[in-house]
Design a protein around this nucleic acid. Structure first.
Length: 299
DNA sequence: AACGGACCCAACCGCGCTCTT
DNA sequence: AAAGAGCGCGGTTGGGTCCGT
């Protein structure tokens, strides 16, 4: 079936979205809700194809999106889910409701892939010289679990507090803020400003965060390489179906799953892992653990 | 200050799936 | 059952920014 790309039509605009376009799109979606993308350009007068509108909404304007500054916990989740699911970014993103698949994909391609490659090289050379003591492996496993528990808790909090359109208003106000500055590059700046608004971290702080993340990554991957293979398949087998759910559906599903677990109904290993909140209180301990170079380094 | 390469990310492209007619 | 339309997903790219020289 050969179809001309919708964006090839004459009069369809390409390139970066302007704040004006963003406001039009957000206003329209606030009024009519997301969906029926075909009608969006027609009804709004936007010179964009439906696909472009959908992408702009889902990857940028949608409420509740967190941009930049991936936490070590998020990194851990992405790395592990990627190992289980492969490059199924939408499925991975469904476990991180605040993140878009595009964001995760970009982060993977620009940061994590390199880190893993670098680490793999180090691991290869390490394996040839020495083997990892088992107590360190199990400690590492505990770290990852805590990491997930922390993230899961925050996800649940997000779900409880997330008010879709209130948050969208916040997006618009941020857009307007950028627009009012009337910069010649306002359209391109918006994203950066959103980033900056949400993050007060300095470059140095981000760097130090990256170091922590890398330490955690190392312990994570040591587990990945040495301990996870046996359950990987059974876990992933159950995931594709779940991945079709929206983040909200998933959270509800996870809550239900937790209830099932209370009734001793079998869970997948991943579900158990994600939902076991018995050690949630150890999150702070984990954070100090992650920041402590002596505890993070296995080598 | 100027330049060039590296990096990052928003946006686009193309494929495949699902739903409708 | 077949064709077309709409949508979602993953891969890729263009251009802006950062950073070292």
């Amino acid at each position: 079936m050969v179809r001309p790309p919708c964006c090839d039509k004459v009069g369809i605009k390409k390139g970066p979205w302007t704040p004006e376009e963003d406001i039009i799109l957000v206003s329209y979606i606030q009024e009519h809700g997301p969906g029926n993308w075909r009608s969006v350009p027609t009804n709004t007068g936007l010179l964009r194809c439906s696909k472009s509108c959908r992408l702009r909404w889902t990857n940028y304007l949608r409420p509740g999106i967190k941009r930049g500054n991936f936490t070590p916990h998020e990194e851990g989740m992405i790395i592990h889910l990627q190992a289980m699911l492969g490059n199924r970014w939408a499925a991975i993103a469904s476990y991180l409701p605040q993140r878009t698949d595009n964001d995760i994909k970009n982060y993977w391609n620009t940061h994590l892939k390199k880190k893993i490659k670098k680490f793999q090289t180090a691991l290869d050379s390490h394996i040839t010289s020495d083997s990892s003591p088992s107590h360190l492996i199990s400690k590492s496993y505990g770290d990852i679990r805590n990491s997930y528990n922390c993230n899961h808790s925050s996800v649940l909090r997000l779900n409880q507090s997330c008010s879709t359109y209130a948050s969208s208003t916040e997006n618009i106000s941020r857009l307007l803020e950028g627009w009012m500055r009337n910069s010649p590059k306002a359209g391109l700046k918006t994203g950066q400003e959103n980033n900056n608004t949400q993050s007060t971290q300095t470059k140095a702080e981000q760097e130090s965060c990256n170091i922590i993340a890398h330490d955690e990554l190392e312990s994570l991957l040591s587990f990945e390489n040495l301990s996870s293979m046996s359950w990987e398949k059974s876990s992933s087998d159950s995931l594709p179906l779940e991945s079709q759910l929206t983040p909200t559906d998933r959270l509800n599903s996870m809550a239900e799953t937790k209830m099932r677990s209370d009734n001793n109904t079998p869970l997948t290993f991943l579900e158990k892992w994600l939902l076991d909140e018995a050690t949630t209180g150890q999150v702070e301990e984990l954070m100090s653990l992650s920041a402590d170079p002596s505890s993070a380094s296995m080598f």
